[in-house]
Amino acid sequence: MPTVSLTVNGNPVHADIDPRTLLVQLLRENLRLTGTRVGCDTSQCGSCVVHMDGKAVKSCTVLTLQAEGTAITTIEGLALGETLHPMQQAFRDNHGLQCGFCTSGMIMTAVDMVRRKGHALDDHTIRRELEGNLCRCTGYHNIVKSIAAGARAMESADPLRRAAE
């Protein structure tokens, strides 16, 4: 079986894998990082979004072998110890979820959005940027609110956190 080496949430990972192993399978089944979800498995719903070298990707549509040498961040890699990432905290404060299935993908997409679009995000931008993330419970209102609040909070996050990003 081919081998793969990559970094997941800062930790080096080496594995012998079936070439068909999707990145999301490696994360969930080999590494037991089950915060990343498989919703549709057809790159539509966004619940599998993780960061690959700092960019949001749908981990159900990346072969693990394509991720050779990359740095992956999952939802488990966002918090600093017991302190939630500002975007996680914003989802909590604004009730940005109901069942929670889409939430890790929403948060990973939101953090990527802030990196690309900055800290002052209007509703229109947020809704457009969420084109690849489906939520079937909330109707999106509180998700949009959470992301706007999280984006602002990321700006004033402590220097340690910002250095980590």
Partner: peptide, 9 residues
């Protein structure tokens, strides 16, 4: 094309 995560790949 697609959406942000797809455009990254």
């Amino acid at each position: 094309i697609g959406e942000p995560a797809v455009r990254h790949r």
